[in-house]
Amino acid sequence: MNAEQKLALGPIQSIWDEQSRDQQRKWLQVANRYRTMKPEEQTRLHARMADWAKLTPDQRRKARENYKSVKGLPPEVRDAQWQNYQALPDERKQAVKDKAEAAKQATKPGSAKQRP
C-alpha cells in the first residue's frame, strides 16, 4: 500500500488486517479513486469508512449479506422499496429502525432473547 492509498484508507487502518484479501483488494480500488473525488465526496467516504470500522466483524458480515440481497433485486423493486421507505413519516421510520435494532440486540451472543 502506497502513501496515497494509506491516506485514503486511513479510517479503516485499525481493521485492515481483519479484512480478507478480496476485501482489501476492493478497498484499494476505492483508494485509487479517492484522489479524483471532490473534497465533499472524500469527506463523506471517510465518514462512512469510520462508521464501518466501528462495526463488529459480525455486524460487517451482516451488512455485506444485506447489501448482496438488496443488490440482487431488480432495480425497479429496489427503487420502489426505497421510495416506500422514504414516504414513511419520521415516527414510522424510527419504528422500523427500532425494530431492526431490537432484532439485532436479540441475536447478540449472551442475550437472553437469543434465538436457538
Results as ranks from 00 to 15, higher is better:
residue 86 Q to R: 14
residue 29 Q to W: 01
residue 14 S to M: 04
residue 15 I to S: 03
residue 43 T to Y: 12
residue 99 K to I: 03
residue 78 R to H: 09
residue 8 A to C: 04
residue 60 R to L: 02
residue 31 A to L: 07
residue 98 D to F: 03
residue 29 Q to R: 11
residue 116 P to I: 02
residue 111 S to L: 08
residue 114 Q to E: 11
residue 98 D to V: 02
residue 36 T to V: 05
residue 101 E to S: 04
residue 4 E to Q: 11
residue 104 K to A: 13
residue 56 T to R: 07
residue 94 Q to G: 05
residue 51 D to P: 00
residue 22 D to V: 08
residue 35 R to L: 04
residue 73 L to K: 14
residue 107 T to C: 00
residue 112 A to Y: 08
residue 26 K to N: 08
residue 5 Q to N: 12
residue 79 D to C: 03
residue 82 W to Y: 10
residue 108 K to L: 12
residue 26 K to E: 11
residue 5 Q to E: 15
residue 110 G to Q: 08
residue 11 P to W: 01
residue 95 A to E: 13
residue 105 Q to R: 14
residue 40 E to W: 10
residue 116 P to D: 11
residue 3 A to T: 13
residue 63 A to N: 01
residue 103 A to L: 15
residue 16 W to C: 01
residue 38 K to M: 10
residue 92 R to T: 10
residue 101 E to C: 00
residue 72 G to D: 15
residue 79 D to I: 03
residue 33 R to F: 05
residue 16 W to K: 01
residue 34 Y to Q: 02
residue 32 N to R: 03
residue 69 S to E: 15
residue 103 A to V: 05
residue 39 P to G: 11
residue 21 R to S: 12
residue 42 Q to T: 07
residue 16 W to H: 02
residue 30 V to K: 00
residue 99 K to G: 05
residue 116 P to S: 08
residue 18 E to N: 09
residue 85 Y to A: 06
residue 40 E to H: 13
residue 56 T to F: 07
residue 70 V to L: 11
residue 25 R to H: 14
residue 55 L to C: 07
residue 43 T to P: 01
residue 18 E to G: 05
residue 75 P to F: 06
residue 39 P to Q: 13
residue 26 K to T: 04
residue 109 P to E: 10
residue 7 L to E: 14
residue 23 Q to Y: 02
residue 59 Q to G: 13
residue 42 Q to S: 07
residue 50 A to I: 02
residue 74 P to M: 06
residue 71 K to F: 15
residue 74 P to V: 09
residue 55 L to K: 12
residue 93 K to R: 15
residue 12 I to D: 01
residue 48 R to T: 03
residue 31 A to C: 09
residue 54 K to R: 14
residue 2 N to T: 14
residue 96 V to M: 15
residue 109 P to S: 09
residue 113 K to G: 06
residue 45 L to W: 06
residue 104 K to G: 04
residue 86 Q to G: 00
residue 46 H to D: 15
residue 80 A to W: 02
residue 110 G to F: 10
residue 115 R to L: 08
residue 56 T to S: 15
residue 72 G to V: 12
residue 108 K to F: 00
residue 83 Q to P: 00
residue 60 R to P: 01
residue 13 Q to G: 08
residue 107 T to W: 00
residue 26 K to R: 07
residue 71 K to M: 14
residue 114 Q to K: 14
residue 79 D to K: 14
residue 43 T to R: 14
residue 39 P to L: 10
residue 43 T to C: 04
residue 47 A to Y: 09
residue 76 E to Q: 12
residue 115 R to I: 05
residue 62 K to W: 04
residue 62 K to M: 09
residue 76 E to L: 05
residue 8 A to K: 01
residue 31 A to V: 08
residue 53 A to G: 09
residue 82 W to H: 05
residue 14 S to E: 10
residue 113 K to F: 08
residue 44 R to W: 07
residue 24 Q to P: 10
residue 77 V to C: 01
residue 74 P to K: 10
residue 3 A to L: 08
residue 24 Q to K: 15
residue 99 K to V: 05
residue 11 P to T: 00
residue 29 Q to C: 01
residue 15 I to C: 05
residue 74 P to Q: 12
residue 12 I to C: 01
residue 29 Q to M: 07
residue 90 D to M: 02
residue 23 Q to A: 15
residue 22 D to H: 06
residue 16 W to D: 03
residue 53 A to R: 03
residue 84 N to M: 07
residue 70 V to P: 00
residue 36 T to N: 11
residue 20 S to I: 11
residue 78 R to S: 15
residue 25 R to T: 14
residue 2 N to S: 11
residue 110 G to D: 12
residue 36 T to D: 12
residue 51 D to Q: 13
residue 65 E to Y: 01
residue 43 T to W: 08
